[in-house]
Amino acid sequence: MPQIKLSTPLADENVENLRIGQKVLLNGILYTARDAAHKKMMELLDRGEPLPFDLRGNVIYYVGPSPTKPGMVIGSAGPTTAGRMDAYTPRLLSLGLKGMIGKGKRTPEVIKAIKQNKSVYFTAVGGAAALISQSIKKCRVLAYPELGPEAIHELYVEDFPVIVVNDSLGGDLYDEGIKIYSTI
C-alpha cells in the first residue's frame, strides 16, 4: 500500500488532503497524554494559563508506555482507547490541535469537531506496542512527572506508522470498513 510521509507540526493542506484508510508515516515531535494529563490541561485552560506545549499544528498520542528498560529509549508504547479523551477533545481541537493518535471509535461530537477544525484522527495498531516503540527515537518528560506513565512526554519519532480513521471531511474508517466486509 502507498504510504504518505508527514512531518509535525502538520501543515493545514497536508491534513486536508488526508483520506480515511491512508497509511501515514509520521516524523518529528508527538506529545503523549492520557486521561489524567487531559484533565490537568483542562484545569490550566480554565485558569487561563498556557499549556505545557503549543497545540497549533501538533499531534497528541494517547499512550501510557510501560517502564523503560535500561538502555532503551522508551518501554512498549502502543495506543490506548481514545474514547476516554472524547470529552476533552473538541476544546483542544478548537485551540489548534491538528491530530490525534489512539485506538477505537470517537463520538459524533469529536468527529464533527475534527471536520470543523480540519484535523485528523489516526490509529496506530493497538497492541503492536513493541514494534511501535522502535520508531520512537527520543523521549523526555515534558510535564506532570508525578503522573508516571500518564505524564506528558515529548517523543521524537521517525516513520511512526498510523492509519487515517477520521478525516477532515467527516469520514470514519471504522464505519466504512465494516460496511465493506460485513456479510451479515
Partner: peptide
C-alpha cells in the same frame, strides 16, 4: 505487524503490549 511485534517483544524481552 502483530507477527513482527511478537518477534520483537520476545527478542528484546519487552512486553508485547504496554
Amino acid at each position: 505487524q502483530l507477527i513482527q511485534n511478537a518477534q520483537i517483544a520476545a527478542e528484546n524481552k519487552v512486553p508485547m503490549c504496554q
